[in-house]
Amino acid sequence: MILLTGVTGTVGRLVARSLTTAEPVRVLARDPRRAAAYAGPGTEVVGGDFGEPASLAAALAGVRAAFLVTSDPLAPAHDEHFVTAARRAGVHHVVKLSARAVTEPDADDLITRWQRNAEELLRASGLAWTLLRPRAFMSNTLRWAPSIRAEGVVRAFHGASPNATVDPRDIAEVAALALTGAVLPGRAHSLTGPAAISAAEQVAVLSGLLRRPLRLVELTREQAYAGLSARLPRPVAEALLESAVRQGAGAKARVEPTVRTLLGRPARPYRAWARDHLAAFGDG
């Protein structure tokens, strides 16, 4: 049996859709009713919480491989609880969604340290493991949708700096291969798009597809932090701002060939992602 976590999130829901296997699939979620909307036919949906080890033990019973997505850097015990429960349940292989920055010595923000420590925990567990280390998701630009629809404006910090953003669908396809054994465990995979692209260039792509002018407004550091801290806990907002500053210094522009190597086709470019999600920005 394969267990999926994070199915109400960006990548997890795509893994649930792209996973093709005769093996039984189970989904773990805090809200099973919400998760059921993303589960495939015949998929078992169970309730559970990373903060409640007993619920994890029940969900992992009989599981061979698991897809692990934790999302709260202020709750590092979540990874520990899951890995401990997986080991006790006899799970063979854990595929973990991590981040590209964990390998970069100059990245020392809260989120990167959290992911780095979680990777080390999994590698030391005795379980077979696969680490997926994507660069920023192309889908992060969905945050621009309200201001694009209302004003034709995108507000961004370091708008000219490139980031080798990756289509979440590519991450999900790699995860599905790892879960079904088509990608061997014991390796970490850095996942990027086919080219580094700046916010300004993404705005230009959206403008062309929408066939209307869009304007990029460059945020100051203070404005960027104010926007982050308005919707996130202060330590997380500070970590994301540190990460953005690193991007401004060129730290996120490197492109990796991993998607092409593992999937046998080029990574999807931002234009393809944007075209497939254009309705969110006001088309149609």
Rank of each mutant, 00 (worst) to 15 (best):
R30A: 13
I111E: 00
R215C: 15
L240C: 01
A29V: 09
V174C: 08
V236E: 05
H189T: 07
D49H: 15
V27M: 04
T70E: 02
L142P: 06
E218N: 11
A182N: 14
T220R: 04
S207T: 08
A267Q: 02
I111T: 00
G48E: 07
R30S: 14
A22D: 13
P105G: 06
D49I: 13
W144F: 10
L241N: 01
S55D: 11
V95A: 11
T5A: 14
T20F: 11
P194W: 09
A253K: 15
P266N: 03
V25T: 05
I2T: 02
R271M: 06
F50E: 00
W129L: 07
L127G: 10
F281Y: 07
G282E: 04
A237G: 12
P134K: 13
A280M: 15
R215W: 15
A99E: 03
N140P: 12
R133L: 15
R275G: 10
Y225G: 03
L97S: 02
A22Q: 10
A182T: 15
A61Y: 03
Y38R: 05
L74I: 05
L210M: 06
H81G: 02
R246H: 08
I148H: 01
E238C: 11
T192Y: 01
V63S: 06
E242W: 13
I2N: 00
L219Y: 03
H93K: 09
L214Y: 01
V69L: 07
D106R: 02
L142F: 13
S229T: 12
G40N: 10
S55N: 14
R17A: 15
R116C: 02
V166H: 00
S71M: 06
G159W: 01
R268W: 05
P32Y: 11
A77G: 02
R113G: 08
R246V: 03
R265L: 03
L142E: 10
T165N: 00
P24F: 00
M138I: 13
A237E: 14
P194C: 12
K96Q: 13
R64T: 09
A101M: 06
G152W: 06
H78L: 08
V174T: 02
A244G: 09
F157Q: 00
D79A: 08
